[in-house]
Design a protein around this nucleic acid. Structure first.
Length: 134
DNA sequence: GCCAACGTTGGC
DNA sequence: GCCAACGTTGGC
């Protein structure tokens, strides 16, 4: 079991929309580092869902329901997509500011490397953010 | 294979 | 809307 965090601009696709849709294809990723992480996702893995730009907060937890397959939106290059379903919405969103204030979360990619859109988390980092959201 | 130029992301 | 950071592209 692995733990991840994905980013989405809520104006493009929000956690609320994921709950309405029941599941979604996580496609359109065009970044080599992010692709490595997508390929590492296993069915049942839990994924924190972060809203970038607007909100700047983790909204809840999603779950991998289908492992990496060729991205149907890619016209060239071997890009991959996964399918995500909503798992649990946070009682309160965990803001980037709050995350930056936590000693144990200083080393996560979200803080260190702002632009990566799919990133792994250690169990303790994942748990810590989940606790902050409940 | 290096590196400058360029484009994009995302926080502020 | 600006700008820093970073990834990618392309010339050499």
């Amino acid at each position: 079991m692995n733990y991840w965090l994905v980013k989405s601009e809520p104006s493009v696709y929000s956690y609320e929309q994921l709950e309405k849709d029941k599941k979604t294809t996580w496609d359109g990723v065009r970044n080599f580092a992010a692709r490595i992480h997508l390929n590492g996702m296993k069915k049942g893995d839990l994924v924190l869902f972060y809203h970038s730009n607007e909100g700047k907060a983790v909204m809840g937890i999603a779950k991998v329901v289908k492992e990496a397959f060729p991205d149907p939106t890619a016209t060239e290059g071997q890009w991959v997509a996964v399918e995500l379903a909503p798992h649990k919405k946070f009682k309160k969103p965990v803001t980037l500011e709050a995350i930056k204030g936590e000693e144990v979360l200083q080393n996560i990619y979200l803080v260190r490397q702002g632009r990566l859109s799919v990133m792994p988390l250690k169990l303790e980092e994942f748990d810590h953010i989940v606790e902050m959201g409940n």
